[in-house]
Amino acid sequence: MIRKLNEQDRAGLLAFLGQDPALNLFLISDVENFGFDREFQEVWGEFEPESGQLKAVLLRYETNYLPYAAVPFDVQGFADIMKQDERMKMLSGSTSIAAQFGPYISFRKEKSMHFAELKELAGEPGAQALAETPAKLATLRDVESICTLMDGIDEFEENPDSMRSGMRRALETGTGRTCFVERDGRTVAAASSTAENSMSAMIVGVATHPDYRGQGLATLIVTKLCSDLTKEGKSLCLFYNNPDAASIYKRIGFRDIGDWSMMYT
């Protein structure tokens, strides 16, 4: 049985999603931050008919849909919900789950990335390393210098205005933080978290200026950021498709747990 969820379902839903907090990062964050009664967000759940236990979830955020299930679920039932929405633009989720919607929804484009999780940090940033290269936590006054660094890096394709407003919003709402390093009067390396919630967070925006690469700055700031977050009891995850970046993440302790797909209608 599939039905729309409401505030009375919050505790059971978060307990269900909390069984896999890294994979369910976006679901947990959206439910904690926006609940069930917003125009831009809806949540459905599928329940076992006999026990009444929640077995699968589908969330709509604006024009994007995100499904999750730990066991076989009513794929067609969720697909029917999405097909009734003419505004739908994207389905995203674990590739093993998202791929099941292929027979029911026509997608024009698909993008996949590796998905990694950090359960145990491989090491802390050394005191000497931090003394030699102080890593700072960003405030609102640092947003422009950090985004200027990202403007000059080809891998970052986000609209400059959206990048700046998104970073400001994350800092203002406490849903993200940024760690950065300055050299020669400018920001030369940075890494951020996003979608922070009570259980998990995602590492994003890892960047080093081309003139300062090969000095271990990315490893230093990502390790510092991950250390702060894991001490708060958060499970960490990230997407990547760059082999060079993967080597940094795996030294810190990230391990691949699957792939993540974004499927566009």
Rank of each mutant, 00 (worst) to 15 (best):
R3A: 12
K4R: 15
N6R: 11
D9S: 10
L14P: 05
A15P: 02
F16I: 05
F16K: 00
L17S: 04
G18S: 01
D20V: 15
D30G: 14
F34S: 06
F36D: 04
E39D: 15
E39H: 12
Q41R: 07
E46K: 08
E48D: 15
S51V: 04
A56G: 02
V57A: 00
N64E: 14
Y68V: 07
A70I: 06
V71T: 10
V71C: 09
D74S: 07
K83L: 15
M88W: 06
K89S: 14
L91I: 04
G93E: 07
I97G: 01
A99L: 10
F101T: 01
G102N: 15
G102Q: 14
I105R: 01
I105M: 03
F107M: 05
K109M: 09
K111S: 15
A116V: 12
L118E: 05
L121S: 06
P125E: 02
A135F: 06
A138M: 00
L140M: 00
S145N: 12
C147V: 10
D151A: 05
D151Q: 08
E155N: 08
E158Q: 11
M167G: 02
E172G: 14
T173M: 09
T178L: 02
V181Q: 00
E182D: 03
R186G: 07
A189M: 03
A195K: 14
A201H: 08
T208G: 09
P210A: 02
Y212G: 07
Y212R: 04
R213V: 13
G214K: 04
G214M: 00
G216A: 01
L217N: 00
A218H: 06
L220I: 04
K224W: 13
L225H: 04
C226E: 05
L236S: 03
L236N: 01
L238R: 15
Y240W: 09
N241E: 12
D244M: 02
A246V: 10
I248S: 08
D256G: 15
G258N: 01
